[in-house]
Simulated assay, not measured.
Amino acid sequence: METPLTPYLPLAVVLLLSGVLALIIPTLAGLLGPRRPSAVKSMTFEAGSESSGMARQRFAVKFYVVALLFIVFDVEAVFLYPWAVNFQALGWFGYTEMVVFAATLVVGLIYVWKKGALEWES
């Protein structure tokens, strides 16, 4: 007899298996892995060069502003693609919606540009 949950049995097996593996693999790696500490292995390593400065060093705010701008324009690209695919079905209403959306982002970009947030100084 088939119950309503029978189609979900393969999904439950995969989730159970992945959960078990997520516990077993790190445990076995910790128990069976090599332990040969040395002074060289204990040193901090960053991108192939020795570290300079403190780890708790403050970053310039402009770094975060550029990262946020990247995310904003990445989201714009995500919204632009489905709009372009459905352009004919949306008609003029969809066109004006996208113009307003893009204009808002352009105004924001002009504001950030005038504030000098895109100027990267060493």
Rank of each mutant, 00 (worst) to 15 (best):
E46T: 14
E50W: 13
R35G: 02
L17M: 07
R58W: 08
Q88A: 06
P7N: 02
L105N: 13
G33A: 00
I24Q: 04
W120Y: 13
Q88C: 04
A60P: 12
L23V: 07
G33C: 00
V106T: 05
S38Y: 00
T3K: 05
F93C: 06
P82Q: 00
G91T: 00
K62F: 11
G53P: 01
T96A: 10
M1N: 05
I110D: 05
L11N: 13
L15K: 05
S42V: 05
L80T: 05
V61I: 07
E76V: 11
G94W: 00
L9H: 13
I24Y: 04
L109M: 12
A12W: 07
M54T: 10
A12C: 09
F73P: 01
V75N: 05
L5T: 04
V112D: 15
A77D: 03
S42T: 10
M1F: 15
L80K: 02
L16C: 10
M98C: 02
E50T: 15
S38C: 00
S49V: 08
R35Q: 07
G48I: 02
A39M: 08
E46V: 08
P7H: 01
P37W: 00
G116S: 09
M1A: 08
E121W: 12
V99G: 02
R56Q: 10
Y81E: 06
P34H: 00
K41V: 06
M98P: 02
S49E: 10
L105M: 14
G33S: 00
F45E: 10
V20F: 11
A39L: 15
E50Q: 14
L105V: 01
E76F: 11
G30M: 02
A67N: 05
F63S: 12
S49R: 15
I110M: 13
A84V: 04
L109A: 13
P7V: 01
E2V: 12
V78Y: 04
T96R: 10
T44C: 09
W83Y: 13
G19F: 08
A102L: 11
L109I: 06
R56D: 08
L69W: 11
E2H: 14
S122L: 09
V78H: 03
L105F: 09
A89Y: 01
Y95F: 12
L109D: 03
E119Y: 11
E76D: 07
V14L: 11
A67I: 10
N86S: 06
Y64E: 04
W120I: 15
V106M: 06
Q88K: 13
A60H: 10
V66M: 08
E97Q: 14
A117Q: 14
M54Y: 08
A29M: 15
R58I: 15
Q57R: 09
V75W: 07
S122N: 09
S49M: 11
L28C: 03
V99P: 02
V107T: 15
G94I: 00
W120Q: 09
E46M: 15
I25S: 03
V66T: 07
L5F: 13
P4E: 01
A60W: 06
A67C: 07
D74Q: 13
K41G: 08
A103D: 01
F101K: 01
A29F: 06
M43N: 07
K114Y: 11
S51C: 13
I71C: 12
A77T: 06
V20D: 01
V106K: 03
L23S: 05
R36Y: 03
T96Y: 12
M1T: 04
L32R: 03
T27S: 10
L32A: 10
A60V: 14
T3P: 00
V100F: 07
A77H: 04
L32Y: 03
L11Q: 14
L90M: 04
